[in-house]
């Protein structure tokens, strides 16, 4: 049953249930298929041969397969080939560009750096006495004492001539 041009149904994988034609027999295990499925190599255990057979040459192109299948009323799968895009060439950066990049990086680094704290002289905490206003009374007492002291002058005895 496994021969070139045999109509089959794929029974495994994501193409299961789709019809295809055997295009080539690769060895005693594998065949090449094309049709509603993707054009690919498959294990013969993964295809179920049908009664129909199409006359097709070995390794026929996808267009030939699709034409042959059109006669049977089966639409072959058409995939658009991927457009090849050229890989962008890598360019070496000039020393100036490198310098600019380095500076930018340094700037960014500085953003996240914690700023140095300015040493602030914190005023001493007010004591309870200061808060209560008792401290002022003490100051007044001190000033009074100071004022009283200079008044007390030592009386030195005058030397007799």
């Amino acid at each position: 049953m496994i021969e070139i041009g045999r109509l089959c149904v794929k029974i495994a994988g994501r193409d299961a249930g789709k019809k295809c034609i055997i295009i080539d027999i690769l060895d005693d295990k594998y065949v090449l298929i094309d049709g509603e499925t993707r054009r690919r190599k498959v294990n013969i255990l993964h295809v179920e041969p049908l009664n129909q057979k199409i006359e097709i040459k070995k390794n026929a192109s996808h267009d030939e397969v699709s034409k042959a299948l059109d006669e049977l009323g089966i639409k072959a799968l058409h995939t658009k080939p991927k457009q090849k895009t050229a890989k962008p060439l890598k360019k070496r950066k000039t020393p100036e560009q490198l310098r600019v990049r380095k500076e930018e990086k340094r700037k960014l680094r500085n953003i996240f750096k914690p700023k140095k704290k300015e040493e602030k002289i914190e005023p001493k905490e007010a004591t309870l006495e200061q808060k209560a206003g008792l401290d002022e009374d003490k100051k007044e007492e001190k000033t009074e004492k100071k004022a009283a002291k200079p008044k007390e002058k030592k009386i030195t005895p005058k030397k007799k001539e």
Partner: peptide, 9 residues
Amino acid sequence: MRQAIIDKT
């Protein structure tokens, strides 16, 4: 699933 498809064909 495989058996179901085979039976159908």
